[in-house]
Computed example of a mutant assay.
Amino acid sequence: MNDAAAVPSPCVNVCRMDAASGLCSGCWRTIDEIAAWSTLDDDGKRQVWQAIDLRKAQASAVDGERSR
């Protein structure tokens, strides 16, 4: 198995950085995370995925509060 493919990239080919959040609106990564992706080991890539999951959960919670 190719080590580079062991942890898939979160990129969805929607590359737009949101100025307010500092995150890509497609993959939810920071510019630093995007730039570093190819040099990260699998543990580092998993940490980025965990950060993405946390950001999405926090955004959902905020959206849920707004809809009340």
Rank of each mutant, 00 (worst) to 15 (best):
residue 1 M to S: 09
residue 2 N to E: 05
residue 2 N to D: 09
residue 3 D to F: 02
residue 3 D to R: 05
residue 3 D to W: 01
residue 4 A to E: 02
residue 4 A to P: 00
residue 5 A to N: 00
residue 5 A to E: 00
residue 5 A to Y: 00
residue 5 A to R: 00
residue 5 A to S: 04
residue 5 A to C: 01
residue 6 A to E: 08
residue 6 A to H: 07
residue 6 A to G: 05
residue 7 V to P: 04
residue 7 V to R: 04
residue 8 P to F: 06
residue 8 P to D: 03
residue 8 P to K: 04
residue 9 S to Y: 07
residue 10 P to V: 07
residue 10 P to S: 06
residue 10 P to E: 05
residue 10 P to R: 06
residue 10 P to F: 09
residue 11 C to A: 15
residue 11 C to L: 14
residue 12 V to T: 11
residue 12 V to G: 03
residue 14 V to S: 03
residue 14 V to L: 06
residue 14 V to E: 06
residue 15 C to A: 02
residue 15 C to S: 03
residue 16 R to V: 13
residue 17 M to F: 10
residue 17 M to E: 08
residue 17 M to Y: 08
residue 18 D to F: 06
residue 18 D to L: 05
residue 19 A to C: 03
residue 19 A to F: 06
residue 19 A to R: 09
residue 19 A to T: 08
residue 20 A to S: 13
residue 20 A to K: 14
residue 21 S to I: 11
residue 21 S to H: 11
residue 21 S to R: 13
residue 22 G to M: 07
residue 22 G to F: 08
residue 22 G to I: 07
residue 23 L to D: 13
residue 24 C to D: 14
residue 24 C to T: 11
residue 24 C to P: 10
residue 24 C to H: 15
residue 25 S to T: 14
residue 25 S to A: 09
residue 25 S to L: 12
residue 25 S to Q: 12
residue 26 G to Y: 11
residue 27 C to R: 12
residue 28 W to N: 12
residue 28 W to T: 10
residue 28 W to R: 12
residue 28 W to D: 12
residue 29 R to F: 09
residue 30 T to M: 10
residue 31 I to N: 04
residue 32 D to I: 04
residue 32 D to L: 04
residue 32 D to Y: 01
residue 32 D to E: 11
residue 32 D to A: 12
residue 32 D to C: 02
residue 32 D to W: 00
residue 33 E to L: 06
residue 34 I to Y: 05
residue 34 I to R: 10
residue 34 I to L: 11
residue 35 A to F: 02
residue 35 A to D: 06
residue 36 A to D: 02
residue 36 A to I: 00
residue 37 W to Y: 08
residue 38 S to R: 05
residue 39 T to P: 00
residue 40 L to K: 01
residue 40 L to E: 00
residue 41 D to S: 08
residue 41 D to K: 07
residue 41 D to A: 08
residue 41 D to E: 11
residue 41 D to V: 05
residue 42 D to V: 10
residue 43 D to T: 10
residue 43 D to F: 02
residue 43 D to E: 10
residue 44 G to E: 10
residue 44 G to A: 11
residue 44 G to T: 13
residue 45 K to H: 02
residue 45 K to N: 01
residue 46 R to H: 02
residue 47 Q to H: 10
residue 48 V to Y: 04
residue 48 V to C: 04
residue 50 Q to V: 01
residue 50 Q to A: 09
residue 51 A to T: 12
residue 51 A to R: 13
residue 51 A to F: 05
residue 52 I to Y: 05
residue 53 D to M: 03
residue 53 D to R: 10
residue 53 D to P: 00
residue 53 D to T: 03
residue 54 L to W: 10
residue 55 R to I: 06
residue 55 R to D: 07
residue 55 R to C: 08
residue 55 R to F: 09
residue 57 A to Y: 09
residue 58 Q to S: 12
residue 59 A to D: 11
residue 60 S to A: 13
residue 62 V to Q: 15
residue 62 V to H: 14
residue 63 D to I: 13
residue 63 D to R: 15
residue 64 G to R: 14
residue 64 G to C: 13
residue 64 G to A: 15
residue 65 E to L: 15
residue 65 E to I: 14
residue 66 R to C: 13
residue 66 R to K: 14
residue 66 R to L: 13
residue 67 S to D: 15
residue 67 S to N: 14
residue 67 S to V: 15
residue 68 R to C: 14
residue 68 R to Q: 15
residue 68 R to V: 14
residue 68 R to S: 15
